Simulated scan of single mutants.
Amino acid sequence: MKPFFVIASAIALTATTPALADHHRSSTIVETAIASPQHETLVAAVKAAGLVDTLAGQGPFTVFAPTDSAFAKLPEDTVATLLKPENVTTLRSVLTYHVVAGKVSASELIGMIDENGGSAQLKTVQGALLTASLSDGKVILTDSEGGTASVVQADLKASNGIIHATDTVSMPG
């Protein structure tokens, strides 16, 4: 009887392990960001901008998601000002500047950079371009104003796309 129990337990563990490993794959980009302790400011901004339904939609999307510490680098009161209802258009512009249509993994992005002579232009949902390049093995995003952000965590998979956490808020210019 004992060997049957061991085999049955092993089968049950094998059957549930992929589900645990794929937890984020079954969550949308918004649900994945909500579950992240590093993206509370981003989640508040997405809610204030009315973009929850969009980013929870079918996609796929690639989101370069600034961490809370990235938002903390902005000049004092910037986030509070952006979150005001009268600034929703500006907030949407900043947020959609961090979103690219399609699902682009870190390895695919590095391949695009290599294929294009050291940089790749990414057209954002906002309409402007982000430029991706490599420096010391890290993906660096250069925004319309010349500011740079590093990808600090890559390939957070979601059911409707992928998230790459960044250390700086990119500005559309």
Rank of each mutant, 00 (worst) to 15 (best):
E108T: 13
L95P: 07
D167A: 09
I140S: 06
E108P: 01
S107H: 09
D143I: 02
Q126T: 07
V6W: 10
I11K: 02
H98A: 04
T96G: 04
Q153K: 13
T41E: 09
K138F: 12
S135L: 11
S9W: 07
E31R: 04
A65N: 01
A15V: 14
H39T: 11
N87P: 08
I110P: 02
A10V: 11
Y97F: 07
M1A: 14
L13N: 05
I163V: 13
S26E: 12
K47T: 14
S150L: 06
R25Q: 09
A154I: 03
F61P: 01
T90E: 10
N160D: 07
L82G: 10
L156I: 12
T17R: 01
D53S: 11
A72N: 12
A10I: 13
H164G: 04
L122W: 08
P172T: 10
V79E: 08
V30S: 08
D155P: 07
Y97D: 00
V125K: 07
V94P: 02
A21T: 07
G117A: 08
E108Q: 15
A45E: 02
P18I: 11
T168Y: 03
A10H: 02
P37T: 09
A72V: 09
I162L: 11
S69N: 15
A21R: 12
S159C: 08
S107V: 14
P85N: 10
T62H: 07
R25Y: 05
Y97N: 03
V30Y: 11
G118N: 06
V63D: 00
L51G: 08
I140V: 15
L83I: 06
T28V: 01
S69V: 13
G118F: 09
P172Q: 05
A19F: 15
A120R: 10
S133L: 10
S170F: 00
S36K: 09
D68Q: 11
S119Y: 13
F4R: 10
A165K: 07
S27R: 15
A49I: 01
I7D: 02
E40H: 14
A165L: 05
S36T: 07
L134Q: 12
G59K: 06
S133E: 10
T62M: 01
V46Q: 08
D77N: 15
H164S: 06
E145M: 08
T131L: 03
